[in-house]
Design a protein around this nucleic acid. Sequence first.
DNA 1: CTAAATGCAAACATTTTGCACGTCG
DNA 2: CGACGTGCAAAATGTTTGCATTTAG
Lengths: 139, 139
Amino acid sequence: VIEPAGDLLRERSLRRTRRRLRMIEVLRAARRPLTARELREQLGERNVDLATVYRTLERFVAASLASRVQLGDGTARYEMAGRSHHHHLVCTKCGAVESLATCQVGPLEDLALREHGFRVARHSLEFFGTCQGCNPKRP
Amino acid sequence: VIEPAGDLLRERSLRRTRRRLRMIEVLRAARRPLTARELREQLGERNVDLATVYRTLERFVAASLASRVQLGDGTARYEMAGRSHHHHLVCTKCGAVESLATCQVGPLEDLALREHGFRVARHSLEFFGTCQGCNPKRP
DNA sequence: CTAAATGCAAACATTTTGCACGTCG
DNA sequence: CGACGTGCAAAATGTTTGCATTTAG
């Protein structure tokens, strides 16, 4: 049961515009985090200003509707939040991005607190390498 | 016993210029990864062009002399390579960056291979939160 | 002497900001 | 109606590139 995009917006007191509903649609359909530019292209509307896309995405992030992720190149990418915590497998050959559901960094966060007095709020873990399709086959 | 900066360069067939020796000095002295701009400031020389700094840093990275790290904001930072593998604790209040020596993501890389056929070459893990100094004291 | 390193200027890409107008609630 | 959303233009950043000059090996 997926919550209607309109409800997501209303719950957060964000205005429900066609543009925003469509942005949520696109983000949901994406099987990998999108840059602002990619998102705009997939909107399939004309005259969409990147400034608006950025502003809206930041709105979404602030409302915990989306989250911003960094995948190694300096470019910001966005994906719907709410999915369970996961990490990214970034293929350095073809650029594909997959998700890794498992996360075992809890113990490291404890360690950060014990050894450095550092209180971890959030972490990000990305893997770089080659995906199945790009790996050399062994006959 | 730290290897003289000049040797580091010679071993990699990189030309030994005063500028580069100084860059290595600064990177070594830094207790956290530096942006190109920060590095330039700490050089203490005049007329140093950022383009040169960027080019040189990329040279260093290609020669495995330095490594580029991303700390959440889109800005590239550089630190000397060769230090043992570690991760970063980034304080979101004061901006301090500490290093966490322990790394336990090996099992996750195995998982990536088993479940996704993804061959991990490299990973990056950063923690965001508050450092000891910024944490609320408990009296 | 020759290839590499550097400064300078300019190009690029991404992201942010100011302002006027349009639209949701 | 009033606050918020959007387009447009422009600016701010970070990073890269072309070219002429200098310098290390």
